[in-house]
């Protein structure tokens, strides 16, 4: 996993709440047995019409948001199915950071495992970022070490993150590798709980 320390990128707004993982990556794309290549299917039925043409009114399709790497959205993002294909698609599409009012638990976990930073912000903060993002080329910078998001117009948002996911993201760790260092503890537990 690639470490994430400081990230600057174009912001793409998705002004909706309760976006479920069935929308993020519809089930017909869950049949692949690979981990890569899901980006093309991200928000498939919102990005494309039934004939496979780009929907012009969907934010992610607007020219000004091409190449965006920071997604800003509402409440309860990533609810529903536990499919990790959702963060795989988000990451493969080019997003590295999500800013939302709140997240579903499993989705949030899945993001960390894939090097995606999920930042929680207030409704006002999310709304003001969305407004700013109306302007073409609006970028934000995220400094994970300092736990702060800022733009070049004076906006500055401090955010919370638990120490463990922070460390994981900063170092881009392979979690299994880390856990295997505790193998003796696991074995002891197994012996004691036979």
């Amino acid at each position: 996993m690639e470490p994430l320390r400081i990230h600057t990128g174009v912001v793409c707004p998705l002004n909706r709440s309760n976006v479920d993982t069935d929308q993020i990556i519809p089930k017909q794309f869950l049949k692949r047995i690979e981990r890569s290549g899901f980006g093309q299917f991200l928000f498939y039925h919102w990005r494309f019409d039934d004939d496979g043409n780009l929907r012009k009114d969907f934010s992610m399709n607007l020219p000004k948001y091409q190449g965006a790497s920071i997604l800003v959205t509402g409440e309860n993002f990533g609810c529903g199915s536990s499919r990790e294909h959702a963060p795989w698609a988000i990451q493969d599409f080019g997003f590295r950071v999500i800013i939302a009012q709140s997240y579903a638990d499993i989705f949030k976990n899945n993001c960390v495992k894939n090097g995606i930073l999920t930042i929680q912000a207030s409704e006002e903060q999310v709304q003001s970022i969305m407004q700013n993002a109306e302007t073409e080329g609006y970028t934000l910078t995220v400094n994970l070490e300092e736990q702060v998001v800022f733009d070049n117009q004076g906006l500055e948002i401090k955010f919370d993150i638990a120490p463990y996911p922070k460390e994981m993201l900063l170092n881009g760790w392979d979690e299994i590798g880390v856990t295997l260092n505790y193998e003796d503890k696991i074995s002891q537990y197994e012996v004691a709980h036979k």
Partner: peptide, 19 residues
């Protein structure tokens, strides 16, 4: 429920890091 990275983690270690 868990994601696929966690599935792999449980397969390999029979544990999960959970707050």
């Amino acid at each position: 429920g868990i994601g696929t990275s966690e599935v792999e983690h449980v397969l390999a270690t029979q544990t999960l890091w959970q707050a």
